[in-house]
Every structure is written in C-alpha cells, then in structure tokens.
Amino acid sequence: MEIASAILLLIGALAMLVGGIGILRMPDLFTRLHAVGITDTLGAAAILLGLAFIAGWGLLLVKLFLILAVLLLLNPTASHALGRAAVHGARRPWLSAPK
C-alpha cells in the first residue's frame, strides 16, 4: 500500500515537473496548452490517487475523488476555452513545415 502510494506520488511529481518545464520550453501558446495537459491529467491524477492510498476508506477518499473529478472535468473545458479565445483573438498557431 505504502509502496504503491509512493510510486504514484513520485510519478505525479515528475509529471508536474515535466509539465512545468514544458510550459517554459514550448514555442507558442497552443503547444504550451499540451504541456499544461500533462500537469492537469497525469500529474494531478497520480498525486491525488497516491494520497488516496494514504487516506484509506472514508470521507477523505470521497473528497479526493471529488477534487480529481472536478479537475478532470473543468480543466479541459478551460483549455478548450483558452485555445478558442486565442484563435478568435487572431493568434495563429505556430505550425511546422509540412513534411
């Protein structure tokens, strides 16, 4: 149980770190959105699941899953809204040369 939790927490922390690096390294807004996607899905999910292993059965577990559900439902909506607003604000995505 403890080991599973530790592994999940480690994966989550790494994903958060990679996402943060991605936000800095990516060349434009739209590619940065993908990096945010990592922190929002794998990062948050792995850390919250890892904490769920520590929490054990009870109200805490339900609340942890509630937070996770809220994040997984709302974050893509926010990302989509951001991308859409940027397109409408005449930001053209940086595109690679076609192969």
Binding site: G20, I23, R32, V36, T39, D40, A44, I67, L71
Partner: peptide, 15 residues
C-alpha cells in the same frame, strides 16, 4: 494559461 496551471498546482499542493 500560466494562471490556470498555477491554480491546478496550488490545488494539488494544498491537498
């Protein structure tokens, strides 16, 4: 985008 990512990280950090 940064503020949004910041919020997510704060939520997980507080938990």
């Amino acid at each position: 985008l940064a503020a949004n990512a910041f919020t997510t990280k704060t939520i997980v950090m507080v938990t």
